[in-house]
Every structure is written in structure tokens, then in C-alpha cells.
């Protein structure tokens, strides 16, 4: 009996391993891989929700890129503009907070939790509060601007101010990024700073020569995730602006959702989804590719 068991150990392990991982692997197949392939197929089809999909080749993609589907470029533009503003804003703000929290201070855990708090709030509720805060007529922000004798803003209701407003609101919810930055900062061995101190380095030297290189892999990770998330912004458009005013916040995924669940054009929406997927893939690959030029990994070069 015992001998048998030792012989079949690897088989036994295979059964146990696959058995325990089965739900997750099935989940990957059913909810990710199969849908991905299906959506690839749908994107080549004329497919509104009632009819069966009818193969039409690249018609949907051609319609998107040639501008037959007018909203495509509009939404791409809005999303890229948003990402250009939001990604650096979020990174810089989160990094600043993390640097602050990394200082020798009292009640670090308390402040860390406080800054993370907005992340755990339901997007619907917090969006409502921001709508109220940014109301052009009776919101708090315009009141403050008036006190400071600054020009008032239309915020979500102005076609030039809507994107910056959404970015500003987004900064409020960068708690996870802050926490990841802080964890990275706390992993930096203090010997490096001490060595610099002995050599007479000041705070700037410490930041530029130790903190920044040592945090670069975290920065890189947050940058990649920030880009991916920014390109998929949806909630603010759905809850607050409905794509307006004048399509200025017609974000890509919101447009996709509208295409699929309002106009029931599943083929076109799938084509849009695949364009997004490819863009995310290419961007991620590009950032990874360039990363060895500026990201420092402890443990040396390969």
C-alpha cells in the first residue's frame, strides 16, 4: 500500500492540484478565454441582439476607423485627453502623499487609512457628492473660488472644464496607488540614506539618487496600471456627465457600453472592445520594452 502511494505520488499530486485549481481554471476558461474568442468573432459580425450573428469580415472595424461610426474618434479623443491628464496627475499626487507618509511621523497608520478612505466608498455615492460640490450655482467649490476672487467654473457642465474636473475628482481616490508607493518607499534600506548622509548629501540628493531609482519599479508598475485604468474610465461618464457636454466626456468604454446596451449593436461594440484590448496590449508592451532604460531592479543587471 505504502509503496504504491510513493510510486503514484506525482499522479496523485496532479489530481489534487487540478482538483483544487479546477474552479479557478474553469472560471478562466468560461469567463475569460471563451468570451474573448467569442467577442473576437462577434467583432467580425453584423450582430444586433435579436438576430443571429452574421459574418461580415472587417466591416465593423472599417466603419470605426473611417469615421462612419462618428462617435468612435470622438470617444477615443476624449479618453486619450483624459488619460494624458489623469495618469500623471494621479501618479504625482499619490507619490507626494506617499513621500509625506514615509516621513518620520506620528500616527502614520491613521493618516494612511484616512487617505485611503475615499477608495472604499461606492462610486455612485461619492459621485453624487462631487456633483453637489461642483455645482456651478450653489456648490462649495465655486463659493471658495469667489472668496479667492478667482473666476468661477462650470466644472462638469462646461465642455472645457469637464475633463479637468473628473481628473481632480479622481485624484481624491488614488488611495491604492499611495499605499503601493508607500510600501515601496518603506522597502528602501535606510543604509543608502545613511551612506549619503555621511557623504554630505542633502534631502534633494537623497530623493534624486536613492528614492527615485529605488522606487522606479513601483513607479513603473503604477504607471502601467494607471494607463490601463485611465483608458477604461467609465463610471464618471455614466453617473455624472452621460458623455456630455458636447461629447467632451464621451469616454471610450462608455461609448462601447452605449453601443452595446443602448443601441444593441453587439458587433460594433465587440469591435470597439478589441480595439481597446489591442491598444492596451501595445501600450503595456511598449512601456515594458522601454522600462529597462529607466527602471532599476535591485539584484543587478541580467
Amino acid at each position: 500500500m505504502k509503496k504504491k502511494k510513493t510510486i503514484k505520488m506525482s499522479t496523485w499530486n496532479n489530481i489534487v492540484g487540478w482538483g483544487f485549481a479546477l474552479p479557478a481554471v474553469l472560471g478562466f476558461l468560461i469567463f475569460n478565454l471563451v468570451p474573448m474568442v467569442l467577442s473576437g468573432y462577434y467583432s467580425l459580425c453584423d450582430y444586433n441582439i435579436i438576430k443571429t450573428p452574421e459574418f461580415v469580415g472587417f466591416k465593423n472595424f472599417i466603419a470605426l476607423f473611417t469615421g462612419q461610426e462618428k462617435t468612435f474618434w470622438l470617444s477615443a479623443k476624449a479618453t486619450v485627453l483624459y488619460a494624458i491628464m489623469a495618469v500623471p496627475a494621479n501618479l504625482i499626487f499619490a507619490f507626494m502623499i506617499a513621500l509625506l507618509l514615509n516621513c518620520d511621523m506620528k500616527m502614520r497608520a491613521f493618516f494612511r487609512s484616512l487617505f485611503y478612505l475615499p477608495c472604499i466608498l461606492p462610486a455612485v455615492a461619492s459621485s453624487f457628492v462631487w456633483i453637489l460640490l461642483m455645482n456651478p450655482d450653489f456648490g462649495l467649490f465655486n463659493t471658495i473660488l469667489e472668496w479667492l476672487h478667482l473666476p468661477k467654473s462650470q466644472f462638469f457642465w462646461g465642455k472645457d472644464s469637464v475633463l479637468p474636473s473628473i481628473v481632480f475628482m479622481g485624484i481624491w481616490g488614488t488611495g491604492s496607488t499611495q499605499v503601493i508607493f508607500l510600501a515601496g518607499l518603506q522597502d528602501i534600506p535606510s543604509v543608502y540614506y545613511e551612506a549619503l548622509e555621511i557623504d554630505g548629501g542633502n534631502a534633494w540628493h537623497k530623493f534624486w539618487n536613492v528614492t527615485l531609482p529605488m522606487i522606479s519599479s513601483t513607479l513603473f508598475f503604477n504607471l502601467v496600471m494607471g494607463i490601463i485604468n485611465a483608458l477604461q474610465v467609465f463610471g464618471q461618464a455614466y453617473i455624472i456627465t452621460e458623455g456630455g457636454p458636447n461629447n467632451a466626456s464621451l469616454f471610450y468604454v462608455y461609448n462601447l457600453w452605449r453601443q452595446a446596451f443602448k443601441y444593441m449593436d453587439m458587433g460594433m461594440a465587440s469591435a470597439m472592445a478589441w480595439v481597446l484590448f489591442l491598444v492596451v496590449l501595445v501600450l503595456t508592451a511598449f512601456v515594458f520594452k522601454t522600462s529597462n532604460k529607466w527602471v532599476y531592479y535591485e539584484g543587478g543587471e541580467e
Binding site: A21, A24, F28, M36, Y42, I228, W257, A269, A273, T284
Partner: peptide, 26 residues
């Protein structure tokens, strides 16, 4: 330790990067 472990794990991890909208419609 089972055959296919690291492959399956890698596959599952990639889903974190996968835009939800690709799988949404199907």
C-alpha cells in the same frame, strides 16, 4: 506540485490586465 501549475497561474494572472469590456458582451 502539478503539471501545468505555472502555466495556469500565469494565465489567471493575465486576466488582471485584461480589459473587462472584451469579455463583457459575450
Amino acid at each position: 506540485k502539478w503539471k501545468g501549475r505555472s502555466f495556469c497561474f500565469a494565465m489567471i494572472l493575465t486576466t488582471m490586465m485584461l480589459p473587462g469590456s472584451v469579455t463583457l458582451i459575450p
